[in-house]
Amino acid sequence: MRTSTWIRQHLAALRALLVLTVITGIVYPVAVFAIGQLPGLRENAEGSLIERDGKLVGSSLIGQSFTSADGRAMAQYFQSRPSVAGYDPLSTGASNLGPEDIVDTTARTSLLTTVCTRSKEVGDREGVDGSRQFCTKDGVGAVLSVIGPRDADGDVSRPVRVVSVNELCPAQPFLTTFRGVAVECAKAGEDYSVGRIIPILGDAPVVPAVPADAVTASGSGLDPHISPEYATIQVERVARARGITAAEVRELVAAHTDGRTLGFLGEPRVNVVELNLDLDARYPLRS
């Protein structure tokens, strides 16, 4: 290859590099930034940040925890849905536990018991029935290990031992007997997987008073929204804590409730972050 040809090819490559750098590295980013500053887009482009008195207090797209230093729910605020990520944008994510995660271990609490515990806590806090199907009255997963010979279908028709696997001794099991066999509490560190694991439905309402978003975390761990149903059961508590009427609180809840996106996508939702900030602005705590 002649030297002049080699130089021309490299000059062409250099020109292409410079042109593409200007287009993709300067023109395109500037154009996107400019479009993002248009009315109606600027708020989202800036991260939906919320300022009060010149101070950054949060984002309308990222939830917050409204608890005291010891982790207790603060009575004057609406509570967000649980977050596995602790509402930390740098550790966003879910627990990745599924509906079959029902047995507690020494290493961690099962998803079922986590849901049962949260439901009881919310019920006690809000003064509603916190019972759920497959949960004991004490707020753990109602699960038995039925030990004994199995038939062709894998069922244990004549158990020789039955253990409530999520209730550690000396707890009193939620059932006295199962198929004629006394139910035992579980001993720490003992493995009961040899038995057939059976969740017990119980007599809780089919539709619990505590909604699902009050006891389960979102996939991102950053969701700032709760359902109107969860907001509704919190109204009386917040009103008492702030010394205002429930009607005044409901009015603010309605103001911060969004309908389905485009009228048919998703579900109605309440932005807890914006709602709590509005409560502080309109009805600050009385000393």
Rank of each mutant, 00 (worst) to 15 (best):
L112P: 13
A171F: 05
Y77H: 14
D280A: 12
Y230V: 01
I7C: 09
G47P: 05
G243C: 02
G266R: 02
V249Q: 02
V210F: 04
L262R: 06
L144F: 08
S220N: 13
G139C: 08
R52V: 09
V143W: 10
L144Y: 04
R72I: 01
P39F: 12
Y283D: 00
M74R: 09
E236Q: 15
L168F: 04
A204I: 10
T216Q: 15
S48L: 05
I147P: 11
D258E: 09
V183Y: 13
G130C: 03
G130N: 09
P228S: 14
G141N: 06
R269G: 04
I147M: 09
I233Y: 00
V235C: 05
T176F: 00
I197L: 09
S59H: 06
Y77L: 12
E190P: 00
S164Q: 14
V206A: 13
R260L: 02
A45N: 14
S80Q: 10
I200G: 11
G47W: 04
P224E: 06
S48G: 15
A255F: 01
D278C: 03
K187F: 15
Q234G: 02
H225Q: 07
V32L: 13
S110H: 09
R108K: 11
G221Q: 03
T176P: 00
R237D: 01
A217V: 08
L90K: 12
I50L: 06
V238P: 01
A12F: 02
D88I: 10
Y77W: 08
G58T: 01
L112N: 14
E100N: 08
G202Y: 13
D129G: 11
T113K: 14
A254Y: 04
E51H: 12
R2F: 07
S164L: 09
R158G: 01
I26V: 11
